[in-house]
Amino acid sequence: MGKLFAVVLTIITVVATAIFVMRVWWLPADISVHGPWIDHQLMETMLSSGILFVVSQLALALFVWKSGDRREGRKIKIFPGGAVPMVVLATVLVGAEILALTFVGSKVWASIYQTPPDPNSLAIDVQAEQFAFYFRYPGADGKFGGIHPELMNEASQNFFGLDPAHDTAARDDIVVPTLAIPVNRPVLLTLRAKDVNHAFYVPELRIQQDFVPGLVIPLHFTATQPGKYELVCTQLCGLGHYNMRAYVEVMPQEQFDQWLKQQAAQQ
């Protein structure tokens, strides 16, 4: 039975690890400036914890294999050195690993979430609601109109509760359900929730952030590859959660300018 356990555990370990190593299922293409830092951190962690995983499982398998030994008169053996070296070794090794991960990882985190946005960023207002995202560009005046929750009306497509009758800054605001951004230009999003918690997750951009009602949360990044990607909600928001998504279209600056003009005409 001990040998069977060892064999089964070894097969599980090898197969599970092989699927990681062969990248049968893997992260999608990385299309943001900060993405490679995250991927690098992920690979470092994958490597160190992968070794820990394989070594622990195989050690377990090996010891179980050997402990099934039924030879007459075999004595039990205490682990060489007892518990103390083991405790010291675990503390030092794991401690060193987490120190390394923390130092590098905190820098990655800080450079994404704790640095101010580029002053030349393109500002876009994002509103999440049950169960869609809407994006607002400031229009020709470069200013966003004020938001009045009591004026929000989906039937007339006034998703942001703008008051164009009294607020001239609101009149040229461009509201669309697709996030179009120019490639290689820093983008600064301000995230607002209309009703409940939502989240902004674009796997290719390696970015994720919750929308919280009552808070306006800034989020900035730069996309490096033109293309069409999916933005999905990752914070449970109700029955339509699974279907809450929008497309992110990364395009060259000229194409973006044209797109924006076209959208402005339709408002």
Binding site: P177, T178, N243, A246, Q266, Q267
Partner: peptide
């Protein structure tokens, strides 16, 4: 009257 705006159903 208000403009009849095209509805963008991009998410579906």
């Amino acid at each position: 009257p208000p403009k009849m705006k095209p509805i963008d159903m991009a998410k579906e």
